[in-house]
């Protein structure tokens, strides 16, 4: 069994985001970048399945600039077997990403594709669902538990009300929640070994994918600064305000 894991290179979650003065986007120069956190869960899960013998090969794919190789290497150091970088511009939207991944899936023929449930930059939460749609595969989204039995997987999905359990026939697309596992650390010797693992580089143009955006980002601004409200005199006044003014209790 073979798993394809898609990973995205994003601004590190510890970095304080700064909007560019010209409102064209956010500042990325010299900013620490790393693997999108839920994608790490996807990588971890694939490697766990490989450790347990259910899976024979884990292939990592990332789409973006040359530097995405670093992100792929991180996954290789965690234990994945090889990588594919589809070289593309910085901001291609989820639909184009899904179409690109479909191309790779058709080439690699994995039994399952794992992705993070959403990226912490654009916050779209779309790519996995879109990929499964255009592959006409079933989807399992926001997964916090995953078990394989023969040709199917059983999953628990994190939903607002609690958990939903599904049995899904393979091949399938699964998007991973942070609760799925705790990603391992890559050891130093494994980072060394990862430097020698192969990464295939493909130009996105060669795949014939339409990457023209269908959603235009007109501007990116800082969120409005929240203003302080009123001081209330006592608890009674507070409760009255919450009940009759704000209407939240």
């Amino acid at each position: 069994m073979k798993i394809l894991v898609a990973v995205k290179r994003v601004i590190d979650y510890n970095v304080q985001i700064r909007v560019k003065p010209d409102n064209s986007g956010v500042e990325k120069d010299n900013v620490k970048m790393s693997m999108n956190p839920p994608d790490e869960n996807a990588v971890e899960e694939a490697i766990k399945l490989k450790d347990s013998g259910e899976v024979t090969e884990v292939v990592i794919v990332s789409i973006g600039q040359e530097k995405c190789q670093d992100t792929i290497r991180t996954a290789l150091a965690m234990g994945a077997d090889r990588g594919i970088l589809v070289k593309a511009g910085d901001d291609i939207e989820p639909l184009a990403v899904a179409k690109t991944l479909k191309n790779i899936v058709e080439k690699e023929k994995p039994n399952m594709v794992l992705l993070g449930k959403q990226a912490i930059d654009d916050y779209c939460n779309q790519t996995g669902q879109m990929l499964s749609a255009i592959l006409n595969w079933p989807q399992g989204c926001f997964v916090s538990e995953l078990g394989i039995n023969d040709s199917a997987i059983t999953i628990s999905r994190e939903i607002d009300e609690g958990l939903e359990q599904l049995e899904i026939q393979l091949p399938a697309v699964v998007t991973c929640d942070l609760r799925l596992n705790e990603p391992r650390f890559a050891s130093l010797p494994n980072i060394m070994k990862a430097k020698k693992k192969p990464i295939e580089i493909i130009e996105i143009e060669s795949l014939g994918v339409d990457t023209i955006p269908k959603v235009k980002y007109l501007k990116v601004e800082e969120p409005p600064v929240r203003q302080g409200g009123v001081m209330v005199a006592d608890v009674k006044e507070l409760i009255q305000k919450l009940k009759y003014e704000a209407k939240v209790i």
Binding site: I17, D121, Y123, L218, V220
Partner: peptide, 30 residues
């Protein structure tokens, strides 16, 4: 395409949505 998590409507094709966990606000046109 799909537009996720809009927090405002500017016009029938233009919307506001938070990105970067609400640390930036994007105006997008479909």
């Amino acid at each position: 395409s799909q537009i996720s998590d809009i927090s405002g409507v500017i016009s029938p094709d233009t919307f506001i949505r938070p990105i970067y966990a609400g640390n930036a606000i994007a105006t997008v046109q479909s």
